[in-house]
Amino acid sequence: MIQEAEGIVTGAMETILAISATAGPDIPFVRPEHESLVELGRYKKRGRMIEPAGELTNDEACSLLEAVGRDGDIQSFETLFRYYGPRVKAYMARLTRDPNIAEELMQEVMITVWNKAGQFEATRGNAGTWIFTIARNLRIDAYRKNRRPDFDVNDPAFVPDDTKSAENALADRQDATRLKDAMKDLPQEQIQLLTLSFFDDCSHSKIATKLNLPLGTVKSRIRLAFARLRAALEDGK
């Protein structure tokens, strides 16, 4: 798993730069205002690299998260880190050319995963989605200076799910598998639009400009993608 390498270090840098390059010149480089970044100098020196773990099923990831939440099990956490750390860093690297910033944000995400693992509900959960939402919220907080208003499920004015919409939600692990398969079947053009939306901070109109497509086409492709995913989940009921 662990390799000594100068070559891999350069490889990593190239990957990050390649990823940043695909984000396009229109995405501004924004330096997040993170206190810990002041200390960036310490991490400039590059050492041995962890090779990203290739496979981790949702069931495995859920059990690991539970072990972290229940027992504070550092070994389970390390397994999660080996799999998700490189992915969180890749997600962060899509908005910055600076690998140190991506590394710092990844560290913040993984600390949050450690601290909040006890709140993860494995029964209805998708470990990847849970970690992704933590990473996304942290990325919004780092790159956007304004507040991030969100609904509060414990607010007395909050209208809870009725049974019908609860059924539509990703309610169990079977649904997670069904969704995974449905995603594999989506046409590449739809996957591309979802990727630009979720990872590259692109609005519909920005995507239209970037891909030189009419705005209506972008809208309808995204609508089609979600309609297909919804249909795939409903078929399984």
Partner: peptide, 15 residues
């Protein structure tokens, strides 16, 4: 869906 895409993102090596 975003979580699924996230699972299949090309990972970046970490020290």
């Amino acid at each position: 869906a975003a979580g699924e895409l996230f699972e299949s993102i090309s990972p970046v090596p970490i020290e």
